[in-house]
Amino acid sequence: MLRVSQPVYDALRQHGEETYPHECCGVLLGHFLEEGGQAVNAVEEAVRAGNTRTDSAHNRYHIAPQELVKIQRTGRERGLEIVGFYHSHPDHPAQWSLTDFAEAHWLGCSYVITAVERGAARVTNSFRLAGEREEDKAFEDERIEVTGQMNPGFEPEPLRQSRK
């Protein structure tokens, strides 16, 4: 399960809107927890990263390793680990692609994808990279728990105007 606060959840989705029609990307810092036998990747902070794939930024992303090293270092100085990554899929479903899978190597981490349709963030999904090594890795659907709201994942309909 991925646990993320509402402000961080909103921020990573907003990032995808800001970079539309290009993919955004970033790093999730937090803690690896285990609750009742279940792995919980608890996010404390989403750190924006630059997308170096300027040649094909509408459907590819890549974070420079040097930027990743710095994010990991500053995170560890504050007691935080890299627990996942996020990126957007402009005008494309929030499902992992073969490219996402081929390029995923952080076992145990969460890969969060937000579908951005015509500039507006829609569905956000998370996939945990399971497995013990590169050869047996697999993406597993992962529930997102957004803290700080009444019903995570539930979007209420607008209230109807009462008739006078």
Partner: peptide
């Protein structure tokens, strides 16, 4: 010395 796996991807269906 940092050992750091790469991170990349995208909606592009082929690598």
């Amino acid at each position: 010395l940092s050992i750091i796996p790469s991170i990349a991807g995208g909606s592009c269906p082929v690598g």
